[in-house]
Design a protein around this nucleic acid. Structure first.
Lengths: 383, 383
DNA sequence: CTGTTAGCGCATTCAG
DNA sequence: CTGAATGCGCTAACAG
C-alpha cells in the first residue's frame, strides 16, 4: 500500500510495456479495452500511485496547484479553502501553499510571484483575496501562467476572476434598511483602493438614489476592514449632531460591524433600537454576536469550488478519482446549476472571464426586522 | 527572472560542468572558493532557481513538506500556519497542503495518510492538531516517514511532538480562581479522548488538590470544544441547586467559554459578578468578547515555528535563504532562547521527543480580577 | 578540487 | 493498438 512500486513493476505484472501502462494512467484513448482493464486492476491491487514528481518532469506539466493565501487571519479563508480542498481531493492534483508575510514589504509580494514563476513547480495558481498583491499578478498573466483570482483586488484583473456580486449585495442590504424606514443611512466602506469596497459602495449609492434619498458625504467614512477601524468610523458618525446622525449603518464587512457594535455599546446606544446595523460577509461568528448581525452572505465555499474548477478545466484536467477509477469528464459543477443571480462576464470574449456568484441577505436582529429570515438576491439592481 | 534557465545554462555561463554548479547550489564543501563565488554571482544575475521537481527526482529527496491541516475552522490554525510559513520562507522548501474533509469518514483519514506515503511527494509531514486522525499517524512512523505532530492527539504519539504545557496552564488558571476566593470551580473539558483535554483536566485537579479543595464530579461536564457544547454544559452546571452551583467555570477552550457566556447571559447572570470564567487558548476574538475573556494563552505561532524547525532539522536541511545566499547552519531558533517554562522530554532517548512550550495566563475581565495583566507560567505544578 | 557518466520515474516521440 | 528509445533537469557516484 505504500508507493514502493514503480510503473515498471506494474508493466511487468501486467505483461505489457510501461508505455502502455502510462497510456492507461493518463487516459489515452488508444488502448485495448481488455489490456486497460487488466492494468487498472493491477494498479488497484498494488495500490500503485504514479510519482507526481517524475510525471511532472517527464510530461512537462506538473500536477501541483499553487494557492496564494493572504494573511491567514481573514475569517473566511477557511471556507474558501474547504471548497478548494474538496474539489482537489477528487483529482490527482495536490495543493502547494504560498503565503504572503503580513509583516514584510512590497518586495516580498513580488518575490512570491517570482518563486512561483521561477521554480515552475506548479501548473497553475489560485490567488485568494490577493488585495495589495493583485497588481503583481499581472506578471503571471503576461507569462501565460494559468491563474484564477478569487475576489478582492486593487486593480481590474488581467486574469480570470471569481467573486461575489458585491454591488447587488450592497444594494439589497441598503434597500432593506430603507424599507425599514431609515432615511439617514451611513456607510463604512473598506479600503477604497480595493475593488470590492468600491463595488459595495456603488451598491449603497444605487440603493439610495433608487429610493430618492440624498447621498450625504458626511455619512461615508472609510474603514480598514478591521473591528478597530469600524469602531473609529462609527464613533465619528455617532458624534455627528443629532439631526445629521445616521439611524442605520451599513458596514463594508462584518468585522467592521463588530467595531460599530462596540462603539454603540460604549455610548450606551442600543442596536437595533437606537441604531440599525448591517454587515457584509456573514462570517461564522456573526450569528453569535449580540445582537446577531444582519449581513450579506458571500458564498465563500462556492467561490473556492468554482475557482479551482475553472483553473483545473483551464489546465485541461480530466476530473477523475485517483488512478484506477473510471474517467469522468470534467463538469464545472458549481456553475452547472445556474442559479438565479449568477452573472458571468466575458464568458467567450477576449477579456478574462469574470464570474459573479450571487449573495444573499441574512436578516437577523441587528437591523431591527421583526424576525430572522434570508433574502436570496436574485437580480441586479436596476440601472 | 523567470526560470527559463537550466543548470546547464549556468554551467556554460560559468565555464564549469553542471556537476560543479550543482555542488555549489547544494552547499557541498569541496568547491574552489573563487569558482563558487563566480557561480553564485551568475545564479544571482540570471535569477536561476533550480527545479524542485527535478532535484527531488534525481536526489531521491524532495524539497516539499506536507502539512496536514484539520478542518480549517479552528481559529488558531492561522497562527500556527504563520509560524510555519515564515520559517519555510527562509528555506528552499515549499509546503504541500493535505486537508481532511470534515464530512467524510474514517476512511478518508487513512486515505490521506496513504496518499502521503504512496505519492512520495513530500519529504516529511507536519500534522497539525490531528485529533481523531492521530491514531493513523502511527503508520507514518512505522514507515520511517519524518513526521512532527503539533498538539492534540487521541493517543500518545509515536512521533516527535510539539505542544503547549496544558497541565501547567490549567493549573495556573484554576489556582488563580482559587486565589480570587472561589471554592466551587467547575470544569468543562473538551472531548476527553483527546490528550490535551485530559491534560487540562489534570491541571485542574492538581490545583484543587493542591489547595485542599474537594473534587466534585458534579462540577465536571464534558464539552465538545465548540460554543454550543460549552453552552450546554454551562446550563447543566448553572441548573445545579444553589449550594452546589459553581461560582467559577474553567472552560477547556475559549470557544466553549463563549458558550458559557451565552448561557450566563440567557439567565441574566453577570460575568464576572455572578460567575467567574476562564478559558484556554487565547484566540484572537477573546479580547473582544464582553466581558473580555481571561484565558490561558497558547503560543501557537511558536508551536508552528518550533515544529517546522524540528522537522527540517530532522531532514538534515541546511537553513539558508534561497539559492545564492551564504549558507547558514541550522539553529532551532525557537528553542535557542530557552525560556522559563519550556520542557523537553526524551530529548535524546529512544522515545520520540516531546516539546512542551510554556503558556501564560492572560487575565482580563471575565474572572473578576481588578485589572488586566499577564502571568507567565514558568514552573510545573508541584507534584 | 573537478569533469564524466549514469540514472531518478515517467511521458512521449517514433516505429512497428 | 503496442513496444523501444529518448529525454525532462538534476544529483550522485565514479574517476581523474
Amino acid at each position: 500500500m505504500s508507493g514502493k512500486h514503480t510503473i515498471d513493476d506494474i508493466a511487468r505484472l501486467a505483461g505489457v510495456s510501461k508505455a502502455t501502462v502510462s497510456r492507461v494512467l493518463n487516459h489515452k484513448p488508444d488502448v485495448d479495452p481488455n489490456t486497460r482493464q487488466r492494468i487498472l486492476r493491477i494498479v488497484e491491487e498494488q495500490g500503485f500511485v504514479p510519482s507526481i514528481t517524475a510525471s511532472g518532469l517527464a510530461g512537462g506539466r506538473s500536477r501541483l496547484i499553487g494557492v496564494l493565501v493572504p494573511s491567514f487571519t481573514w475569517p473566511f479563508i477557511p471556507d474558501v479553502m474547504r471548497g478548494i480542498a474538496e474539489v482537489i481531493g477528487q483529482t490527482q492534483y495536490e495543493l502547494v501553499l504560498y503565503s504572503i508575510n503580513d509583516r514584510l514589504r512590497e518586495n516580498n509580494r513580488t518575490s512570491v510571484i517570482d518563486r512561483i514563476l521561477a521554480t515552475k513547480l506548479t501548473a497553475g495558481l489560485l490567488a485568494i483575496f490577493p488585495g495589495m498583491t493583485s497588481p503583481h499578478l499581472g506578471r503571471l498573466f503576461q507569462h501565460d501562467f494559468p491563474t484564477v483570482v478569487i475576489d478582492d483586488q486593487a486593480l481590474p484583473p488581467d486574469t480570470p476572476w471569481v467573486g461575489a456580486n458585491n454591488i447587488t449585495g450592497a444594494y439589497t442590504a441598503v434597500s432593506h434598511l430603507i424599507k425599514l424606514g431609515h432615511r439617514r443611512i451611513a456607510h463604512i466602506p473598506g479600503p477604497l483602493k480595493l475593488l470590492c469596497s468600491r463595488e459595495r459602495y456603488q451598491g449603497y449609492c444605487q440603493a439610495l438614489e433608487e429610493h430618492g434619498l440624498p447621498l450625504d458625504p458626511d455619512l461615508l467614512i472609510e474603514g480598514d476592514f478591521q473591528p478597530k477601524g469600524g469602531r473609529l468610523s462609527a464613533n465619528k458618525l455617532l458624534n455627528l449632531p443629532a439631526e445629521k446622525r445616521p439611524t442605520a449603518i451599513f458596514a463594508g464587512n462584518d468585522q467592521m460591524a463588530y467595531g460599530v457594535l462596540a462603539a454603540a455599546e460604549e455610548r450606551g446606544m442600543r442596536v437595533p433600537g437606537d441604531l440599525a446595523l448591517v454587515g457584509f460577509d456573514d462570517i461564522s461568528t456573526s450569528i453569535h454576536v449580540r445582537p446577531a448581525l444582519t449581513t450579506v452572505r458571500q458564498p465563500f465555499y462556492k467561490m473556492g469550488q468554482c475557482a479551482i474548477e475553472m483553473l483545473l478545466s483551464a489546465l485541461d484536467a480530466p476530473r477523475y478519482p485517483i488512478a484506477g477509477k473510471p474517467f469522468t469528464p470534467f463538469l464545472p459543477a458549481s456553475l452547472a446549476n445556474h442559479e438565479d443571480g449568477l452573472e458571468i462576464k466575458n464568458a467567450n470574449g477576449p477579456e478574462p472571464i469574470r464570474v459573479y456568484l450571487p449573495t444573499s441577505l441574512v436578516v437577523r436582529a441587528s437591523c431591527g426586522s421583526p424576525y430572522p429570515f434570508t433574502v436570496p438576491i436574485t437580480a441586479t439592481p436596476p440601472k
